[in-house]
Amino acid sequence: MQMLFTGFEALPVIAVIALGLGGIIVIQGLSLLPQFGQGQLIYTILVIVITRELGPILAAFIVFARSGTAITTEIGNMVINREIEAFIATGINPISYLVVPRFLGVTLSMMLLNVYFNVFGLLGSFFIAQLFQPLPFSQYAAGLFEAISGADVASTMLKSMIFGALIATVSTFYGFRVERSSTEIPQNTIRSIGVGFTLLIVANGVLTLVYYL
């Protein structure tokens, strides 16, 4: 169920953003790069921007904004309603019952959404490219798969996995930080967004540095 809410329901937003981003890169690239005789660089730019950098981080922002806040609110409400105490009283570990499924669901959803982001971003750019410079799909695919490498795929998947784990951890942590008042729920949600976004950006920077080392 977590994957339905986090993964499947975020797909339309992810698709629209990826299509738009791919289109913008192609429009800007095709208007500028051929002037320097470097039209082939458009594939490299697409891979760097969509696959390696913006794909994982944008998908993570969307997932955090949609599902991270929902998880914090949900767990915070459960704390207020004494449901966590009820779990403990009946011998159920709330971490294994509430946190682990959300952690796995968000992490897996994040990875899959990143794959979809890449597919939509790179396909969207192909359709936009048709408007400016019609070229057969085989040629486009050849150029693209020439530019993309296994390291790029590994980097983007690793990033999305780490981002997913970060989102789930921060969201559940701030959900459990709610103590007794319902007014603490929005406060902790806001705090989780601030901390989560900062951690995502820092993690992205670190992973990018590791990639280039």
């Binding site: 797909l11 794959v115 597919v119 050849a142 798969f145 296994g150």
Partner: peptide, 22 residues
């Protein structure tokens, strides 16, 4: 959602591999 996602990932990896002679 999951099968299609993993299928697309595998397809991308296969395409990269075949293009780069893995």
């Amino acid at each position: 959602f999951v099968i299609l996602g993993f299928g697309l990932l595998l397809m991308i990896i296969f395409m990269i591999g075949s293009n780069q002679r893995w």
